[in-house]
Design a protein around this nucleic acid. Structure first.
Length: 825
RNA sequence: GCGGCGGUGGUGGAACGGUAGACACGACGGACUCAAAAUCCGUUGUCCGCAAGGACGUGAGGGUUCGAAUCCCUCUCGCCGCACCA
């Protein structure tokens, strides 16, 4: 026996050096003519990492999944684009700079270097010629260019509104970055502030973002989250008239069928007309106090669902268009300015919130829809279900679903309203009062006003500053030399926009840049992009279900409208991998002290073992706790395979891995197992992402080899080479090593093995014999035997006979090549 | 409250409506060794039984079916997202 041992630290760097020097994983862009006759393309992409410190175990899993997919597709003859880059702008580097004084650029570049070392040590098959980082001017030049294109089309705009402000990070946040009223990043409570900010008009795409979810292969949970977030509701806009001031107030309602049940009218504290309406009334001072209090509340306090319904009367009324009734107007903080029109018609009989408010303020409650079984008592209100309409004038007796349509028709004919849809989605607030981000390419000229930076002046470079401390305005504002510039239109003095962009802007288009990463004339050549788009398989964490994945979809649709690309969706298929939890089953965190760092693991067990382990641990879309013992088991498996390679090469000369033509006995068992494993691994990987069971199948093949040590050498060589070939997508170094040892060939240059269908079926099988659905015997039966023969064999079996004694056979079910079920009474 | 996903041995997990528990961990037993490590072989759902064998078993209850972890209904527990969205 060989004295040598499986030493990943010796094997892995050797193969990495070959892939690096031969640029094995680079794929060139082809000319249009070349592309026509080229093999099918496959764009496989993992979400780009945010470089902060060292990579963690989650990165290892993410890239182990993506690399397996990329290898699998390459060996099916696809031209696989598999690039990588860095999402390099962002708050953590800047906060670190404030704490330590290390400039964000320095810390980021250092972290990028650590990621680069790690990715090479993991043996990932990346096309490094397309590497990008979002903080480099060569990249963010084009982020700015895209911003300008959006600006030209009115899709980027500046406006004042109530926005989320994080007092700790001293910057505004997008809606998507506020979790339960707290800052997504630092956890501090978020305040509402009235500020002028930059927005992307993502709401213009709400319908398409919603509808096109049906065209992509994404996990249902992610689609559901996006649908939820976009929140399309259909209903009607109804106009209520205020006589005193002569102003029309439209409201949005999903229940126009309950219009006769409206008994009051409520406006949001932020509604611009609230103070105007209250002016001169007895309630003026009270309204003013209420509005001030509401505006100063934190988002979390304001949003608490079970909070008592507070509010103040405005001393005014509006007229209900359906019956001319005057409805008292109120201001109350349960009405949100951002949704609908900032005002509602209140129907306490059929809406829980309006009901609570009516009870608290002694307002009338009127039933206008009959409850189930003709219920008409007021005790059962509020009632949100369907039924015939009552107390609704000429609509009485009409079912409310019908009444809904009729009411909209009536409103339309009277010009008092119309059917409409409303969305929960708000425009994307993209400006940040922080330093470490992409500068917004806009100037403010004293005479020309807001002026976009001309394309030829891009990039607007991020200047070096000394003080990163946020003070409620961007640290860039202190860079006087940079801020003061001249207007490209009038040559007069102008000032630069000092806010920077949300980092999600950078990551909303990076996957397009990979396709043409070194183009310095344009962000990409549309023809080149057409070769690669869309991404055939995207892989990342579920935490981006709304943020990045929604923003990127919006960008692609907007860019498609500009005819800069020809797809409507960036990610044709998405896979979301589960988290790796600490050994204690809790999320890894420094404070818990349960963090497993990938690099020491790799030094100890090798990259192959670490990669296989994170794939073997369970279904890859599920969370799983780290277990060193389990990792050792995977390492043991790889060592067993390695030893088989050594043994085969010691007993046999090198040669191609061919399936022996007419194996018998042990050899046949081995060859069959090898073909079974090929079939199993192939179907498990083919769109199913069942890496855990694929690896288990290779383990079975290896176990079978240990069980038949004396099988004929050619059969053993075939089986071992097959195991090496199949394990390659998960353990590329070991796969390449063992395969070369016994065949002299490079496994990644070999096509994916094909299972021989003849080897997948044996001559005989174990027939399961059931009586009334319970297994009573198993007998050997010839494959392909006719039903009658199987029935006869089963009925004759001892197990069936003993359970049948005295009972009458009613029926016999035969499943060919599988089982017989005897139904007896 | 709304939406989505789950509940299978001691553990992670397998299982086109057709042998529940593949594979792995752990545990137990054995081989090799002066000994240990490493390695190799075997046993391992629960209960009854010396055994042959049998009974029970996929959160609970019902249904469909020759046959249900799998499909349907009711309930329950857990996780995730959204949440005063009119």
């Amino acid at each position: 026996m060989s004295e040598r041992r499986y030493e990943p630290s010796e094997i892995e760097p050797r193969w990495q050096a070959i892939w690096e020097s031969e640029r094995t994983w680079e794929v060139p862009n082809l000319s249009a003519a070349e592309a026509d006759s080229a093999p099918p393309k496959s764009y496989v992409l993992e979400m780009l990492p945010y470089p902060s410190g060292e990579p963690h175990i989650g990165h290892l899993k993410n890239y182990a999944v993506g690399d397996a997919v990329a290898h699998f597709r390459r060996r099916h003859g696809h031209r696989v684009l598999h690039p990588l880059g860095y999402d390099a702008f962002g708050l953590p580097a800047e906060n670190n700079a404030i704490k330590t004084g290390i400039p964000p650029r320095e810390a980021t570049d250092e972290s990028i270097a650590a990621f680069q070392r790690a990715f090479r040590a993991w043996g990932l098959s990346i096309d490094w010629s397309r590497e990008i980082a979002s903080h480099e001017p060569a990249y963010y030049r084009w982020t700015q260019w895209i911003f300008l294109r959006l600006y030209e089309r009115g899709l980027a705009y500046r406006k004042e509104s109530a926005v989320n402000w994080c007092p700790n990070d001293q910057t505004v946040l997008a809606n998507e970055q506020v979790i339960d009223g707290h800052c997504e990043r630092c956890g501090h409570e978020v305040e509402l502030r009235q500020l002028e900010q930059w927005f992307f008009r993502i709401t213009a795409y709400a319908d398409r973002l919603l509808d096109d979810l049906d065209t992509i292969r994404w996990p249902e949970s992610v689609k559901a989250q996006q649908r939820n977030w976009i929140g399309r509701s259909t209903g009607a806009e109804v106009t209520f008239h205020n006589e005193q001031l002569g102003i029309d107030y439209p409201v949005f309602t999903t229940r126009p069928d309950t219009l006769f049940g409206a008994t009051f009218f409520v406006m949001a504290p932020e509604h611009p007309d609230v103070l105007k309406l209250a002016a001169g009334t007895a309630q003026e001072a009270e309204v003013r106090a209420y509005v001030n209090r509401a505006l100063n509340e934190t988002a979390a306090d304001r949003g608490a669902a079970d909070k008592p319904k507070t509010g103040v009367a405005l001393g005014r009324t509006v007229t209900n268009p359906v019956n001319g009734e005057p409805l008292p107007m109120y201001v109350a903080d349960y009405v949100l300015m951002e949704y609908g029109t900032g005002a509602i018609m209140a129907v306490p009989g059929h809406d829980e919130r309006d009901h609570a408010f009516a009870v608290a303020h002694g307002l009338p409650i009127r039933r206008v829809i009959e409850g189930p079984d003709g219920a008409t008592s007021d005790e059962e209100l509020p009632y949100a279900g369907d039924g015939p309409m009552v107390n609704s004038g000429r609509f009485d007796g009409t079912h409310n679903r019908t009444g809904y349509e009729q009411m909209i028709e009536w409103l339309q004919s009277e010009q008092r309203g119309h059917g409409t849809v409303s969305y929960r989605l708000r425009d994307w607030l993209l400006s940040r009062q922080r330093y470490w981000g992409c500068p917004i390419p806009i100037l403010y000229c004293e005479s020309c006003g807001m002026v976009p930076v001309p394309d030829e002046d891009l990039p607007v470079r991020l200047p070096e500053v000394e003080d990163y401390q946020p003070r409620g305005r961007s640290p860039l504002a202190a860079a006087e030399d940079w801020v003061h510039t001249t207007c490209p239109r009038c040559d007069g003095p102008a000032r630069r926009e000092t806010d920077t962009m949300d980092t999600f802007v950078d990551s909303s288009w990076y996957f397009l840049r990979y396709c043409d990463a070194r183009n310095d004339q344009a962000p990409w050549d549309p023809e080149v992009l057409a070769q690669w788009a869309p991404i055939d398989q995207y892989i990342g964490g579920i935490e981006h279900a709304i943020l990045h994945l929604l923003y990127a979809r919006f960008f692609v649709k907007a860019l498609a409208d500009m005819e800069l690309l020809s797809v409507q969706e960036p990610f044709a298929a998405l896979f979301t991998q589960g988290m790796i939890l600490g050994p204690d089953g809790a999320k890894m965190s420094k404070s818990r002290g349960n963090v497993i760092s990938p690099m020491p693991i790799i030094e100890r067990y090798g990259a192959d073992a670490a990669r296989c382990y994170v794939l073997f641990i369970g279904p890859p879309d599920q969370d799983a706790a780290w277990s060193e013992k389990s990792l050792e088991g995977v390492h043991r498996f790889l060592a067993r395979l390695w030893r088989l390679g050594e043994e085969v090469s010691a007993n046999d000369s090198r040669g191609p891995a061919e399936s022996p033509s007419a194996p018998e006995g042990d050899a046949l068992t081995l060859v069959r197992k090898a073909h079974w494993a090929i079939d199993k691994v192939t179907t498990d990987l083919d769109g199913r992402f069942a890496f855990n069971t694929a690896i288990a199948a290779i383990m079975e093949l290896v176990n079978e080899l240990y069980r038949h040590p004396d099988a004929e050498p050619r059969a053993r060589r075939f089986a071992v080479a097959t195991a090496a070939s199949l394990v390659f997508p998960f353990a590329p170094h070991l796969g390449a090593e063992v395969y070369e040892t016994i065949t002299g060939e490079r496994v990644w240059e070999q096509p994916w093995p094909q299972a021989d269908p003849a080897m997948l079926v044996a001559d005989s099988f174990e027939l399961v014999c059931q009586v009334n659905g319970k297994v009573r015997d198993r007998v050997n039966a010839p494959t392909g035997a006719p039903r009658e023969e199987l029935e006869r064999l089963a009925l004759a079996s001892a197990g069936v006979q003993s359970h049948l004694n005295g009972h009458e056979v009613v029926k016999v079910i035969v499943v060919p090549d599988k089982l017989v079920n005897v139904v007896a009474r």
